[in-house]
Nucleic acid binder design. Structure first.
Length: 260
DNA sequence: ATGGTTGGTAGCCAA
């Protein structure tokens, strides 16, 4: 089964591209971030017409996540535990049937950007990642296959940026941010892309500004982290980079895995 | 490179 993650930067502005990509990539499950829509305004019909079930956790204007699935979605749960006062729509969890009469737990997550550093936005980013660590500990104890997918807003290593020196003052490349990411893999989660290559120059985001796409000035911030039970079944990993060259693109591209 | 571009909104904010 194929599971993808894509920060689409506005589902209504991106509907044509989303429908085109769903048709050509035919993923079983899609984790969307930055839908920038309330649940009632999410364009469900054209997506359901392609055979997808739709679960959304949106808010007005910004943030917002969704999960699309050709298979039934069960136990759909919004919000990351650990802060009842956090109203930002950044986390949606669901269970999907696998190919073997079992299940895969899937999360669509949109981690805080955290800029500028030294502000409450950066401390919110770090606090959010701590809450995510607690969630991972809880779910690892279930010994299930799970896929934590999304826009992590973290550049894990220098090779994950075309020009790492330009990111040294950015929240996405701070040591605290990278350490928070490393803590997840240290808990036993497998970063899908790094099971197939240790190469650099592989990106998932190119800024709209200053011709970043044309210059290949990208960063790799969209990741799929797998529990041991999911990692055992990892069969393929891909990045649909060509989508970035389409008309009216998102600044991110889809990243996907196949599980046997 | 201290600018630049986009989406949602109608506040310029968030990225």
């Amino acid at each position: 089964m194929k599971i993808a993650t894509w920060n689409i930067n506005g589902v209504k502005a991106r509907l044509d591209g989303l429908v085109t990509w769903l048709g050509e990539a035919s993923p079983d499950v899609v984790c969307l971030q930055e839908i920038k829509s309330i649940d009632e305004a999410f364009p469900r019909e054209p997506i359901e017409a392609l055979g997808y079930n739709v679960a959304t956790h949106g808010q007005k204007g910004f943030n917002g996540v969704a999960i699309l699935s050709k298979r039934p979605l069960e136990d759909v749960t919004p919000r990351l535990s650990g802060d009842e006062d956090d109203v930002q729509a950044r986390f949606l969890e669901a269970i999907v049937p696998d190919d073997h009469d079992g299940i895969v737990r899937v999360v669509s997550a949109y981690m805080p950007n955290g800029n500028p550093i030294g502000t409450e936005k950066f401390s919110y980013k770090l606090a959010w990642m701590e809450r995510l660590e607690a969630w991972v500990d809880d779910r690892l104890a279930l010994e299930e296959p799970f896929v934590l997918a999304g826009d992590f807003n973290i550049i894990p290593e220098s090779i994950d940026a075309r020009y790492p020196q330009r990111w040294t003052e950015d929240a996405l490349f701070q040591p605290e941010s990278r350490n928070a990411y490393r803590k997840l893999t240290a808990r036993g989660l497998t970063e899908a892309l790094r099971t197939v290559t240790d190469a650099g120059d592989i990106y998932t985001f190119w800024d709209y500004q200053a011709g970043a796409w044309q210059k290949n000035n990208g960063i790799r911030i969209d990741h799929l982290l797998l529990s041991p039970e999911a990692a055992d079944r990892l069969a393929a990993v891909g990045i649909d980079k060509h989508v970035r060259a389409w008309e009216k693109p998102s600044d991110h591209v889809p990243v996907w895995i196949a599980l046997s």
